[in-house]
Amino acid sequence: MSNDFHDLGNYLKEKRIDEGFTQGALAKKLKVHTQFVSNWERGLCAPPSHCFHHVIEVLKLNREHIVEVMLNDSKRIIESKVYKKKRKLKSA
């Protein structure tokens, strides 16, 4: 599994801890399985769009900051693809 949401996962974990939630307590509040919260925090996936707004509210996330965090993850993914392709072309 890929760690495409590394920065988002770290941010969500930090905010969860700041708000005093365990993974289980947050999962219960969001009405999702604890494994989902664990997967988010490990950067394996992002919260699905149908509950993302609730995550923002419960963890009191700054909307502008979360956009920056997600853009950083996207930038890293894109750069890794671009530079991998570039290296492969040079060695061919």
Score class of each variant (00 low, 15 high):
2 S>E: 07
5 F>C: 08
6 H>S: 07
6 H>G: 01
6 H>P: 08
9 G>D: 13
9 G>A: 05
11 Y>M: 08
11 Y>T: 10
12 L>P: 01
12 L>V: 03
12 L>M: 08
12 L>T: 10
13 K>L: 07
13 K>E: 01
13 K>A: 11
14 E>M: 09
16 R>E: 06
16 R>C: 04
16 R>F: 06
16 R>I: 06
17 I>E: 08
17 I>M: 12
17 I>Q: 06
17 I>H: 02
18 D>Y: 04
18 D>T: 01
19 E>C: 05
20 G>K: 01
20 G>S: 02
20 G>R: 00
21 F>I: 03
22 T>K: 02
22 T>N: 06
23 Q>M: 15
24 G>I: 01
24 G>T: 01
24 G>K: 02
26 L>S: 03
26 L>P: 05
26 L>Y: 09
26 L>T: 03
26 L>G: 00
27 A>G: 15
29 K>L: 13
30 L>W: 03
30 L>H: 03
30 L>G: 01
31 K>E: 09
32 V>R: 07
33 H>G: 09
35 Q>V: 03
35 Q>K: 02
35 Q>C: 04
36 F>I: 04
36 F>E: 13
37 V>P: 00
38 S>A: 12
40 W>P: 03
40 W>T: 03
40 W>M: 02
41 E>V: 00
41 E>Q: 11
41 E>N: 06
41 E>D: 00
42 R>F: 00
43 G>I: 10
43 G>E: 01
43 G>S: 07
44 L>P: 00
44 L>W: 04
44 L>T: 14
45 C>F: 00
46 A>K: 13
46 A>T: 08
46 A>C: 10
46 A>F: 05
46 A>W: 00
47 P>I: 09
47 P>A: 10
47 P>N: 05
48 P>N: 09
48 P>F: 03
48 P>M: 01
49 S>N: 12
49 S>V: 14
50 H>P: 00
50 H>S: 09
51 C>N: 10
53 H>P: 02
54 H>E: 15
54 H>F: 11
55 V>I: 12
55 V>K: 09
55 V>S: 01
55 V>Q: 01
56 I>Q: 10
56 I>S: 10
56 I>H: 02
56 I>D: 01
56 I>R: 08
58 V>A: 07
58 V>F: 11
58 V>H: 01
59 L>D: 09
59 L>G: 09
59 L>H: 09
60 K>Q: 12
61 L>G: 12
61 L>P: 15
62 N>F: 01
62 N>E: 13
62 N>A: 13
62 N>W: 09
63 R>H: 06
64 E>C: 02
65 H>L: 14
65 H>M: 07
65 H>W: 08
66 I>H: 07
66 I>F: 09
68 E>P: 06
69 V>L: 08
69 V>R: 10
70 M>A: 14
71 L>W: 10
71 L>F: 13
72 N>R: 15
72 N>I: 10
73 D>S: 11
74 S>G: 13
75 K>I: 15
75 K>A: 14
76 R>L: 14
76 R>Y: 12
77 I>A: 06
77 I>Y: 14
78 I>C: 07
82 V>S: 02
83 Y>A: 05
84 K>I: 07
85 K>Y: 07
87 R>P: 04
88 K>Y: 13
89 L>H: 11
89 L>Q: 14
90 K>D: 15
90 K>Q: 14
91 S>L: 13
91 S>Q: 07
91 S>K: 12
92 A>H: 09
92 A>G: 13
